[in-house]
Amino acid sequence: MNFQYQPGNSFLHSVDPLNKVAWMVCISILAFIYEDTISHVILFAAVMLIAVVLAKLSVAFIFRGIWMLAVFSLGFFVLQVIFVPGKEILFSIGSLSIFKESVDFATAITFRIITVFLTSMVFVVTTDPRDLVLSLTQHLKIPYRIAYSLSIALRFIPTLESEAKVIEAAQVIRGVGKQKGLIHKIANFKRFTMPLLMSSIRRVHMTAITMEARGYGAYGTRTYTRELKVTAPSIVFSLASAAITVSLIAAKFI
């Protein structure tokens, strides 16, 4: 259950959602502006440091969350190395030449994908969906129907993950889902996907009926049981992120 809110007492848990969104935007801007490998490795290391120190996430927890994307990125890395052209040849395997520019480009793109994904995971793990709704409605004045839709999206991710584990366990108990071979794996995928899809549709339908039954959205405004406060450390965190981002952009283009 790596993609859901994990209650904690870290610094990032105390930062309000909007300032964490500002931090995510800064990381994304740097990830897409810089193109060399060294810059992306440093950016990834910085996000990892923030995740471990400021969010108090263990390294094992982080790698459990990103390992699947890392495997996908490895395949993407190999394809980029093979098909992206270059000038300086590092080595050759038969008739296949591996270029230095191709390896540098593939490594940078791979770290870019993982860095942006890791930043999003840190945001999800340290952000209570209820606080996100309050922040959007109270501070940005976004209609609460739209804000609640974003909250539901964050809540459904761990719910689907939990239901996927239940479906997998039920199929194993019935003696299916672990057969080897490509044909069996395709059949297993179909048996796994359809129940998950139907469960998701059923849950969305029930949520919509519940919202209608409770008159959700009948009024333009609503009251709140608590008001989300923006603390000084949160502002300092987002301003520091913005200042570092502007400085790095200026250092690159000036």
Rank of each mutant, 00 (worst) to 15 (best):
P233W: 00
V52G: 06
H205N: 15
V246L: 15
A22S: 11
H205Q: 15
N2K: 11
F63Y: 12
I167A: 05
G75S: 05
L90G: 10
K252S: 09
A170K: 08
K20G: 03
M206W: 10
L239S: 09
S120A: 04
F237P: 06
R191I: 09
I152P: 02
A240M: 09
F11Y: 11
Q4H: 11
S247F: 14
S39Q: 13
V15T: 03
R174V: 10
G220N: 14
E88Q: 14
W67M: 08
E168K: 10
F111I: 04
L196V: 06
A242R: 00
L140I: 05
D16C: 00
P129D: 06
I38F: 15
Y148L: 08
S149T: 10
F117G: 01
V71T: 07
N2L: 15
S238Y: 03
S200E: 08
S10T: 05
Q4M: 13
V41C: 12
R155N: 07
I146H: 07
R226N: 14
V53R: 13
S39D: 13
V124L: 07
Y224A: 13
T225E: 15
R174E: 13
A213W: 10
M48V: 12
G181F: 14
I27M: 13
G220C: 10
G94V: 10
A242D: 02
I89L: 05
F61A: 15
L239H: 03
V236E: 03
P143A: 12
V103E: 10
R145C: 08
